[in-house]
């Protein structure tokens, strides 16, 4: 449903992405892995509209979106959880979530969506009136994801979920993300530095280095691939 075709993206006069193409099929979880600064976040930002590709095209459900403004892309059904969460920290959790359902189609079913959110993230029910900035890192991440879900997206973009979180908390959150993907058939495209954790919960993966796609394939295949192991599974990461 999401098709990226040979995009070039510049970041302030420097080319950051070279001829990247990728596909996310409906209902799948796709992960972008690669080292720091490889360009993974830039690709995500290009999809959401925060940056524009200088060449190539991005289509979502057969509609070109690479020239659309950000809010329009959200209306079409793509929602992003940005790097660093970017919550409205002075607002309550409820305030954040309500803003998440700003899109007209989502407003009407706001309460329904909220109930579903409470099912996936039970912790939030108790924190609903609390000021968002006072929550713990893991809880904030949940709010950020919940907020993105409030717009009833068909595709969810996740940028570096595990940043600043302990491995245990991250794992927990990824379990919830997998649950979202399976229960509601919401497609997921995520960027993650912890390659092993990411590949374990994804269906497919793309390896990005220096702004180019270096490899792609089913997640399990990539997990077993010796080159990937060498490049990304650093010393001290015991794995079976």
């Amino acid at each position: 449903m999401l098709k990226i075709n040979e995009i070039d993206v510049y970041y302030r006069d420097q080319q950051a992405i070279w001829g990247v193409s990728l596909v996310v099929e409906k209902g799948k979880t796709v992960v972008l892995i690669g080292s720091n600064g490889a360009g993974k976040s830039t690709i995500i930002k290009a999809i959401s509209g925060l940056v524009r590709p200088a060449a190539g095209s991005i289509s979502f459900e057969n509609n070109r979106i690479d020239k659309e403004p950000v809010h329009r892309i959200v209306e079409l059904g793509i929602s992003m959880v940005p790097e660093g969460r970017r919550l409205f920290s002075q607002m309550s959790v409820l305030g954040n979530l309500e803003l998440g359902s700003f899109v007209h189609s989502a407003r009407q079913v706001k309460n329904e969506t909220l109930n579903w959110i409470y099912e996936i993230f039970p912790v939030l029910k108790n924190r609903i009136q609390q000021v968002a900035g006072t929550l713990s890192g893991g809880e904030q991440q949940m709010v950020a994801i919940a907020r993105a879900l409030m717009s009833k997206p068909k595709l969810l973009l996740l940028d570096e979920l595990s940043l600043g979180l302990s491995p245990l908390v991250s794992q927990n959150i990824y379990k919830m993300v997998r649950q979202i993907n399976e229960s509601k058939r919401i497609s997921i495209l995520l960027v993650e530095q912890n390659v092993r954790m990411a590949l374990k919960m994804a269906d497919e993966g793309y390896v990005i280095e220096n702004g180019r796609i270096m490899g792609e394939g089913k997640a399990e295949t990539l997990l077993r691939n010796p080159a990937v192991k060498d490049a990304y599974f650093g010393l001290g990461q015991a794995w079976r």
């Binding site: 950000v70 940005p82 803003l99």
Partner: peptide, 25 residues
């Protein structure tokens, strides 16, 4: 109002606000 909340959101973080589907312009 939703519009008023949008204003508050933009004042705090306009990029995040745009990701909510708010038409900044």
């Amino acid at each position: 109002t939703y519009f008023g909340k949008a204003i508050t959101a933009i004042a705090q973080d306009w990029e995040a606000a745009s990701l909510m589907g708010i038409n900044i312009d």
